[in-house]
Simulated scan of single mutants.
Amino acid sequence: MKKVSFAEFGGPEVLRLVDAEEPHAGPGQVRVAVRAAGVNPVDWRIREGQILQAHPVELPAGVGLDAAGVVDEVGEGVEDVEVGDPVFGEGTDTYAEFAVLSAWARIPGGLTFDEAAGYPSVVETALRIIREVGVRPGQTLLVSGAAGGVGSAVLQIARDRGIAVIGTAGAANQDYLRGLGAAATTYGAGWAERVRRLGRVDAALDLAGAGVLAELVELTGDPQKVVSIADLGAPEFGVRFSGAAGSVPAALAEAGRLIARGKLHIPVEKSYPLAEAAAAHIDSQAGHTRGRRVLVV
C-alpha cells in the first residue's frame, strides 16, 4: 500500500509517499480502507519533533491521526461495526491507503468521507478545552484564531451551550465567524482593544499560538481562565497548555448528535491527493484556514 512517511524530523520536505506493509486490526480495533485523512496542526508538530514527550516517535514514522473510510477488517471483540460500514475516527498513520483505528463511529448521514475526516480530533479538542477553561452558560468566551477546524467547532459547541463567543481571525474570515454566531474582530495591532469594545471576556482560548497569551490573561484577569493548544510557552504565563486527548469515542458520539441536530458543520477548505501531503502541511502551518484541510485517497 501507499503511505506517507518521514525518516527524519524537519520541514514538509521530509515527507515521502512510500510503499509499506498493510497494517492489521488488533483486538478492539478496526482497519479501514481510507477515503480521506484529516490534516491537523499536531501532525506537523510531530513531524518537526516538537512534542516528543507527548507523542514519542520511532523513525521512520507514519503521519496522521484522523480518517474516514470503509471498514475492511474487524479486530477481536469489536461488535458495533462490520466490514463494509463507513466510519470516521482516530488511529495511527492515517495518511495511507489503509489505517487502523482505535476509536470510531459510523459516519453521520449527509457527510461525505472528506467532510467526516475533518471531525474526530477537532471535536475532541474543542470539547476538552471548553471543559478545561471552565466557561459557563451566560458567560463570554474569546477564541483567538477562531476560523480553523478547532475554532469552528468551539464556536458552534459553545453557542449551543448558551455561551456567547468572540472570535479573532484574518480580515477574510470575519463574515465566516459571524455566520457561526460569533462577534468577530481581526487580530494584529490593537486587537485586544477591539475585543474590549465587543464586551466582557470571562474565558479565552488560544488556538493559533500567535504570541497573544499576555493579552488573553489581561482580558480575562486570570491565567486560569485561559487555555492554549498552540503555544508551548503557556506555562510561563501561568496558562494551561492542553495536549492530552480525552475520550475520542465520547467526542465522536457528541459530534454525531450535534450534526444530526444541525448544530455543527465544519467545512473542508481544501482537499489534496495523498502525494501532496507536504503541500497540505505547508498550507496548514501558514494558518488562515477556514475549516479543515484533508488528504483524499
Rank of each mutant, 00 (worst) to 15 (best):
W104N: 00
D72K: 03
G84V: 12
E90C: 14
D85C: 05
V143C: 05
G145E: 06
L155E: 02
D160P: 01
R131K: 10
E79T: 15
A158P: 11
I130K: 00
W104D: 00
A158K: 03
P108K: 03
T140W: 03
D114K: 15
V70G: 10
G77S: 09
S152V: 01
D80G: 04
G109V: 07
I130R: 01
A116T: 11
F88E: 02
A96R: 04
V83D: 13
F113Q: 07
V70D: 08
G69Y: 13
S144C: 10
E73A: 10
T125I: 02
I129L: 00
A153E: 09
R128C: 01
I157W: 12
Y119A: 01
S144N: 15
P120A: 13
S121G: 10
V135F: 04
S102C: 09
A116E: 08
E73W: 10
E132I: 08
V123L: 03
D80Y: 10
E132A: 09
A126R: 07
R161S: 15
G151L: 00
F98I: 02
T140E: 07
I157Q: 05
R128H: 09
G75M: 04
V71A: 03
G149P: 12
I130H: 02
Y95W: 14
A158T: 12
F113P: 09
D80S: 14
V70P: 08
Y95H: 11
A147R: 00
V87A: 09
A147D: 02
G109H: 11
V81N: 07
Y119P: 04
V100M: 04
G149K: 02
V74S: 07
A146P: 13
A96F: 12
F98Y: 12
V70L: 12
E97I: 01
E76D: 14
F88Q: 05
S121R: 11
T125P: 02
V154D: 01
G138S: 05
R159P: 05
E90I: 10
A68W: 15
F113H: 14
E79R: 12
G69H: 09
R159M: 09
L111R: 07
D160Q: 15
V81I: 12
R161A: 15
S144Y: 06
G145Q: 03
P137R: 05
A126Q: 08
T92P: 10
R159K: 14
D85I: 08
P86R: 14
D93Y: 13
T92I: 15
I130V: 08
T112D: 08
Y119H: 08
V123N: 01
Q139N: 08
G110E: 05
S152Y: 01
E82I: 13
Q156L: 06
E76L: 04
D72F: 14
L141N: 01
G110Q: 04
G91T: 02
V143A: 06
D85T: 14
R131V: 00
T125Q: 04
L155W: 09
A68V: 15
G134K: 12
P86D: 13
G148K: 01
E115Y: 06
G148F: 09
G148Y: 04
Q139H: 13
Y95P: 04
P108D: 06
P108N: 06
A68L: 12
G118K: 06
V122Q: 00
